[in-house]
Nucleic acid binder design. Structure first.
Length: 141
DNA sequence: GCCAACGTTGGC
DNA sequence: GCCAACGTTGGC
């Protein structure tokens, strides 16, 4: 069976918190204006996971979302940018803070740390396992 | 093609 | 509120 990929998606809770995503049931990740982030969006497949991270305030991964629609033209611009749709999958039992992530050896190479201004970054399978363990959360089978 | 100025992101 | 990192822009 095809293995899904995992990504980390930043959102400022002031603008769009996890709770709003849960309420909405679905949201469009638009407004990305960075080439590397755009490439990441374009690499996403339906069913891929997205760690939902609260930037600026909270600074923690709070939930796991799932890609429900592959990349398409970002409707907020005429230029060549992409967006995807994601739906909430499940909240983390224990949110994983940036401090926790930095303190964990196995996560030192996470793209979100090495390029901390990127709003969409890849997460490797081992990194996902570590984070889920820290979050005391298991993905549904 | 270089580089200074400037804007944005995001941690602190 | 400040500042570091870094991408973009524009003058030359």
């Amino acid at each position: 069976m095809a293995r899904t990929h995992t990504w980390l998606i930043k959102s400022e809770p002031k603008k769009y918190p996890w709770s709003q995503l849960v309420k909405d049931g679905l949201t469009r990740c638009d407004g990305v204006r960075d080439f590397e982030a755009r490439n990441n969006l374009r690499a996403m497949a339906v069913g891929d996971l997205g760690l939902f991270y609260h930037s600026n305030e909270g600074k923690e991964v709070v939930g796991v979302a799932q890609v429900t629609r592959e990349h398409y033209q970002d409707p907020t611009t005429e230029e060549d940018w992409s967006c995807v749709d994601v739906a909430p999958l499940l909240p983390l039992v224990k949110p994983v803070t940036l401090v926790d992530i930095k303190a964990r050896k196995g996560l030192a190479k996470m793209r979100m740390l090495t390029h901390n201004r990127l709003s969409v970054t890849p997460v490797t399978a081992p990194e996902l396992r570590v984070i889920l363990a820290m979050a005391e959360t298991e993905l549904p089978a």
